[in-house]
Design a protein around this nucleic acid. Structure first.
Lengths: 218, 218
DNA sequence: GTCTATATGCGGATAGAC
DNA sequence: GTCTATCCGCATATAGAC
């Protein structure tokens, strides 16, 4: 029989999210959080560097999974596809079953500038990490940078829809949709066709890869 | 005859950039800055909300110019082109003649995490503002969001090159280059061509618009 | 507890605009 | 003469280092 109840980190995260949701981030003290979780402040700051970090435990796990998925994924895919593929896999594995919690967490962050700053930093770090693994795998630095940024852009567009009240589609299904929208938007082009000599299918189709869901007509 | 020397804000900004460059952001106090500028601490905090803000005066001006340029620009351009066009104009008007200062400022920011956070916030705010003006002008919210994000991505790629030691090309010339790289990267596509039914030239060429410099062969 | 640095509140002075 | 913009002085809250 354990000396303490298990899952201290999880209990702290859950208690914090509840309280931030109920009364706002600023008006919630660490004392309240640890009280609800049945722990002490010392324990809180043992696990989290500051009050904000309690909301970002998932980010580190996600980053690790995403990077691993890219590194272990299909080497022949073009960079942007490789990243989006990894994002889809990780979305299924770690996000879809926590939709309610993740949505509430996102609402809390959106309501507080300090938390938004932290979120921006985490996203920037993730983008950097993706660019680094892409760079190590194949391409030149600029392609890695652009592919990572473009993938994160699509991810954010999909995520925004996924966390909307009426939305029922999975994040995995929303991602290819967002990617398609991104391609459409980026390819709207007013310049000389000669300059825009980009073959949209310069890479061959890989018949072995899983089929990509076509964007929904809506 | 004025009671004080004019341009207090500019003097503070210049003094701060010099000192941050010489000894780093953390090791520089507000007291040192105001001493070099011949002012007092109270005046410093009258003009800047905190120590970091002294480095970001240009951001607000840039944002205003960029938004104005988009709003006053060619309505018929597709959103991404409209934004990049505006970025080119503003790059010429406000950045090219301060290349040395802007480069030093960027190096200072890159050397300090706190400043990077602030920079991320400013960029996010600018992206939001661009998306808002695009949304107001024409497109749906998602297209506006994606076009704004894609434009900022190209801008960042171009800016990174522009601030590199040996680089001699202008930011205006680097921007179309970066945009082309972004289009190339985004269009590397492994999926079924039927899904990727994106016509790279669905918009007609506007013969009246200024010619776009072709990417340099290097 | 002291010291340093950041940041804020409130009042006051004066030059120039009206 | 009043008003406003700009800057200064003083006191103080807060936070971290030592």
């Amino acid at each position: 029989m354990p000396r303490w109840k298990p899952d201290a980190v999880e209990r702290l995260q859950a208690a914090a999210l509840e309280l931030f949701d109920e009364q706002g981030f600023e008006r919630t003290t660490v004392a309240e959080i640890v009280q609800r979780a049945g722990l002490t402040q010392r324990t809180f700051f043992n696990h989290f560097a500051d009050k904000r970090e309690v909301l970002f435990g998932l980010s580190a796990e996600l980053q690790q999974e995403i990077i691993g998925e890219i590194a272990g994924g299909d080497d022949t895919l073009p960079p942007l596809d490789a990243v989006v593929r990894a994002l889809e896999v990780v979305a299924d594995k770690m996000l879809e079953n926590r939709r309610a919690v993740v949505t509430r967490r996102y609402a809390v962050i959106a309501a507080n500038p300090e938390l938004q700053e932290r979120e921006l930093s985490k996203n920037a770090a993730l983008t950097e990490a993706i660019a680094a693994v892409l760079h190590a795998r194949c391409g030149d630095p600029e392609t890695a940078f652009l592919a990572a940024g473009a993938a994160m852009l699509a991810q954010q567009a999909a995520f925004r829809k996924w966390t909307r009240p009426g939305e029922t589609r999975t994040l995995r299904d929303l991602l290819p949709d967002a990617l398609h929208s991104l391609r459409t938007t980026v390819n709207q082009n007013s310049v000389d066709p000669n300059q825009n000599s980009v073959d949209p299918n310069q890479n061959s189709v890989d018949p072995n890869q899983n089929s990509v869901d076509p964007p929904l007509p809506t």
